[in-house]
Design a binder for these strands. Structure first.
Lengths: 204, 204
DNA sequence: CCTTCACTTGACACAGTGTCAATTGACATG
DNA sequence: CATGTCAATTGACACTGTGTCAAGTGAAGG
């Protein structure tokens, strides 16, 4: 396995993201990637120990391109807890469809690959922290619904925002992205904000 | 493939459910099943065309044992819409952990096997009908929150009750079954019942 | 006795991942 | 120019699990 910055290594990562971006499915094979990168299948293993490691590295590669960290930051600027909750839900919800094609292979590997499962779990754990921060901001403002502890509310919000739910609503239910975002925001407010104050319920 | 009622066929199905029940993991192999049934791996294919078909048949076998249809029925007896919603959520929530070991292999095959995906989708579609009936009962009582159409409310309830969310809450979040049920019921009421009338928020 | 039928035995094909040894070709350095 | 290094190639093979096939066995039953 060569050093972190190798031209070929970058080519492999780029080939992987390109294939996923183009919708060739989350079951991209090592040989597909190699061909796209213009090298041999075996040569891929000179740079990545196995498929899981390659896919994990690919997600970091995507992070850089998408400036992922900057995406969730704006919610931190929110003044009130309610604003923060809204902003966070909105930011994450808007982020899902962008990263979905790249996240999916990792999700798919989870059941069989320990490393892949761990990598995905870590990302989701990070996302949980955003949920917790939003809930804590509500609590600080005394706006957290009395029915939930911070922990329980965080777990519920975290669960609602799972990629699988986005998948289900947009695919099985055929919802538009806008409808998804609107409803998620609405649910979060209704469930976690004291008194369930909800501005309006637009149809999306 | 021999006729539907063959002693061996039953033995294979029983072997499969036994293995899953005992927690040998949702990745049971054809050879594991064959050994457990006391026959050859190849002989399994005398009764089932492939792994997907076997697993699908296994779920029907489990349906019979668990009298699945009877489980969701009680909610139909509910007088008010609110009672029906409660009853349905509770019945399904209680049902999940029982069927989970048998459902999981099918869920796992979904991404790669058309037939498995279809079989699972059909089951979930049935479950959706229960959701819709509950929401419609609310609507009839003029108790459906004005924020949602029947369709949207059904989709949301349906999504909330997905097995993946139960998995996430009980596994990733470490929730007890009781806590899961309590919170799901609470959410459903809060989200869909006009005025969000909620009795109490016990900690489970 | 002979057939039928379920099952066994032993073999093989196929995909996809991962590994290995020998080789090539470029580039760099003495 | 000779030599060594290093990335990549070539061709092969192992492994796992699914699914298939042909020939053989053994018991039940007309």
């Amino acid at each position: 396995m060569s050093s972190e910055n190798s031209e070929t290594r970058r080519r492999i990562l780029q080939a992987t993201t390109d294939l996923l971006q183009e919708g060739h499915g989350a079951d991209v094979r090592m040989s597909d990637i190699a061909r796209r990168a213009g090298i041999t299948r075996q040569a891929v293993y000179l740079h990545f120990a196995n498929r899981a490691e390659l896919l994990i590295a690919m997600t970091f590669h995507v992070d850089e391109i998408k400036r992922s960290n900057d995406r969730l930051a704006p919610s931190r600027a929110a003044r009130t807890g309610t604003e923060r909750l809204d902003a966070y839900v909105e930011a994450w919800a808007a982020y899902i469809p962008e990263i979905y094609p790249f996240a999916k292979p990792l999700m798919l590997m989870g059941p069989t690959d320990e490393a892949a499962r761990g990598a995905w779990a870590r990302r989701m754990q990070d996302m949980r922290e955003g949920c917790e921060a939003a809930i804590q901001a509500l609590e600080r403002d005394r706006m957290l619904s009395a029915e939930h502890t911070v922990d329980a509310a965080t777990d519920l919000l975290w669960t609602m925002m799972q990629v699988e739910n986005w998948e289900h609503l947009t695919q099985a239910c055929g919802w538009s992205q806008a409808k998804y975002v609107e409803n998620l925001k609405h649910m979060a407010r209704r469930l976690f904000v004291v008194d369930g104050s909800v501005r309006s319920a637009r149809e999306a």
